[in-house]
């Protein structure tokens, strides 16, 4: 690591002010992306602002049909939460697939979506459920939030405070893990909330998480795995690496999407 100054503000307001006042600050949530990056000397922030001392950022609550999860809520908490299991069981299931148990005890939902790693799991849930990302400044619909590989709609210094999910029972996440890293090589979140059908895909695309609109259209006729027969994605848009070519990933998206829809239709 390169040297940095460490801050641990006690409120979102203070954190945002700090972030605005330093030249090259980095927000530290669970740290499971930032710390490895620092260790490899791939980032050299002058200031690290730890959000771990802000009580407002934690907690899970259900208000009416809206599940609200604080940005600093750990994956393990979401996975184990009776509230989440009741309101959006697929979300609890997804959280239980992220990384490994020790990673889930540190990693946070806010950190994951702010980072928008193309093979992270949470962005698929946000997009697949039509979540709203609430920040220190505004509310952003998930459809507008994930703008590209490691890119989001967040402005410099803007801090995610909570994520609001609609309560959806008919939803499922299926993940095909990279054999080495265990990150999603393809992960598909499929959900049906009345007329709103969403199929969100992570791990596969060069532009990061995306909604597979052709699949969504096809599922409007009948919400069943078979409805996706014959649909395919262009391999050229997919990530191609040692573990899977674009062609393989495009194929996997089809298979995994069918499995996700079948699980959601249950």
């Amino acid at each position: 690591m390169f040297a940095f100054t460490y801050h641990r503000p006690s409120s979102v307001r203070k954190a945002a002010a700090l972030a605005a006042s330093v030249a090259d600050g980095k927000l530290l949530a669970g740290g499971h992306t930032l710390i490895p990056t620092l260790k490899q000397r791939l980032a050299a922030p002058g200031d690290v602002i730890d959000l771990g001392g802000i009580p407002d950022l934690a907690g899970i609550e259900l208000r009416g049909r809206t599940l609200s999860i604080g940005a600093m809520t750990r994956h393990a908490e979401v996975a184990a939460s009776p509230v989440v299991k009741e309101a959006v069981p697929a979300l609890a299931y997804l959280a239980g697939l992220i990384g490994d148990p020790a990673v889930r005890n540190r990693g946070t939902i806010g950190g994951s979506i702010a980072n928008n790693d193309p093979s992270a799991d949470y962005p698929a849930a946000c997009l697949g459920l039509g979540a709203t990302i609430i920040t220190s400044q505004r509310r952003i619909e998930a459809d507008d939030f994930f703008t590209g590989l490691f890119e989001t709609a967040l402005e410099p210094g803007e801090i995610i405070t909570r994520i609001a999910f609609p309560a959806v029972k008919k939803a499922a996440y299926v993940k095909f893990a990279n054999p080495a890293s265990r990150y999603a090589m393809v992960g598909v979140f499929a959900a049906k909330r009345t007329a709103d059908i969403r199929v969100a895909v992570t791990g596969a695309s060069q532009s990061g998480v995306f909604r597979w609109t052709e699949a969504e259209e096809a599922l409007k006729k009948r919400f069943a795995g078979r409805s996706l027969d014959g649909l395919s994605l262009p391999a050229d848009d997919m990530i191609s690496d040692l573990h899977g070519s674009g062609e393989y990933r495009a194929h996997l998206v089809g298979v995994i999407a069918q499995r996700a829809v079948e699980a959601a239709a249950g």
Partner: peptide, 21 residues
């Protein structure tokens, strides 16, 4: 699972547990 791979330029592609299964 395991296979160490070098690219054409001789860079080790499987240089961590993230890529070497």
């Amino acid at each position: 699972l395991e296979g160490a791979a070098y690219d054409r330029d001789g860079q080790l592609v499987t240089g961590s547990f993230m890529d070497y299964a």
